[in-house]
Simulated assay, not measured.
Amino acid sequence: MLLKKHLREYGLPYLMIMPTIVFLLLFAIYPLAWAFKYMFFDYDGFTQAKFIGMDNFVRLFTRDMEYWHSVWNTVVFTLGKLVIVIPLSLILAFILNNKLFAKNTIRAIIFMPTIISTAVISLVFYLMFNSYNGIINNMLMSIGLIHSPIEWLGVKYSMLTAILVAIWGAVGNYMVLFIAGLQGIPNDLYEAASIDGANKPQQFWHVTIPLLGPVLQMIVMLAIVNTLKSYESIMVLTAGGPGGKTEVMYLYIYKLFFPVSEGDAVVQQYGYGAAVGFTSALIVSVLTGLYLYISRKSSEVH
């Protein structure tokens, strides 16, 4: 009787959340359990899995220098993106939060890359940055800034190009979050600061920035996590090349599970890929936790 009464009262909510639970179990919990199992096996997806204990981790930490190079590339990519996209997003948000002609249209235009497929965006930029017939080189040569094509996707500039594409795709998202934070600051505080003699720059540094602290912490955390895990744009732009110059952690893992071509040095290795994926997840977790710890200590000091 109690069960029937409970189901009669809560049956509809259970039914409504059931698709989400099933989706979570099938596409999150099960893959995690599968990966946790096979990271202790030698398994390529075709032959029978062979238990090898910690050999995958021994290989990862002692012999696979290519992976650790990809970790370093990921850190460079993340720092390069963050030091530009966070200040740029804040500046755009501050400008577009004021009275400005067609500000809603400008906001929509800046935000639009966020809702466009990463693969499509990256393909467009790949064509634009093409060394020989790309629009960027053609434009720079036509106005006399350069005299020969620049290899934007070559060894020297490939990481910079990948960072610029990532910034273009993310700045609108963080801008909207900053605007939401700015709109939560009471105008009375700016009026009081103005009465005390503070000019606009002083109001920005002493009123806006401190009150945006919690929002800024959240945005930086999201940016760190998303950038550490991103690989789609780099896969389209350079496929990790040239010579591993733009190989990042999750692109390296992708190639272990789905080799880009038969000529790749990386072969399909599900067991080893699971071990690398687990290690990468730990790295992302540690870096995110370290940032949260530092930001919390900084907040306590101030």
Results as ranks from 00 to 15, higher is better:
residue 49 A to T: 11
residue 297 K to E: 12
residue 211 L to W: 08
residue 137 N to V: 02
residue 249 M to W: 04
residue 75 V to R: 03
residue 23 F to N: 03
residue 57 F to G: 05
residue 144 G to Q: 05
residue 108 A to K: 01
residue 227 T to E: 02
residue 298 S to L: 13
residue 32 L to V: 13
residue 142 S to W: 11
residue 10 Y to M: 02
residue 76 V to M: 11
residue 41 F to T: 10
residue 116 I to D: 03
residue 207 V to G: 09
residue 66 E to Y: 11
residue 259 P to V: 10
residue 11 G to Q: 05
residue 51 F to E: 09
residue 104 N to S: 07
residue 2 L to T: 13
residue 201 P to D: 14
residue 272 Y to F: 11
residue 116 I to M: 12
residue 227 T to L: 10
residue 202 Q to H: 07
residue 103 K to Y: 02
residue 235 M to S: 13
residue 266 V to H: 08
residue 8 R to A: 12
residue 78 T to K: 06
residue 34 W to F: 15
residue 7 L to D: 12
residue 271 G to T: 02
residue 214 P to L: 03
residue 198 A to N: 03
residue 39 M to G: 08
residue 106 I to Q: 05
residue 18 M to G: 09
residue 81 K to P: 08
residue 86 I to R: 09
residue 148 S to K: 11
residue 206 H to Y: 15
residue 266 V to N: 04
residue 146 I to P: 10
residue 129 F to G: 07
residue 139 M to Y: 13
residue 90 L to V: 09
residue 280 S to F: 02
residue 24 L to G: 12
residue 169 G to F: 02
residue 231 Y to I: 07
residue 115 I to T: 11
residue 166 A to Y: 10
residue 24 L to F: 15
residue 53 G to V: 06
residue 139 M to Q: 09
residue 300 E to P: 09
residue 179 I to Y: 07
residue 65 M to P: 00
residue 184 G to H: 04
residue 66 E to S: 12
residue 22 V to W: 06
residue 119 A to Y: 07
residue 57 F to D: 00
residue 189 L to W: 11
residue 302 H to V: 14
residue 283 I to M: 11
residue 241 G to P: 09
residue 175 M to P: 04
residue 18 M to K: 00
residue 181 G to C: 03
residue 20 T to V: 13
residue 299 S to Y: 12
residue 121 I to C: 08
residue 248 V to L: 08
residue 29 I to M: 07
residue 32 L to I: 13
residue 274 A to F: 04
residue 121 I to N: 03
residue 272 Y to R: 00
residue 70 S to Y: 12
residue 105 T to N: 05
residue 289 G to P: 09
residue 134 G to I: 05
residue 199 N to C: 07
residue 191 E to K: 12
residue 30 Y to N: 07
residue 37 K to M: 13
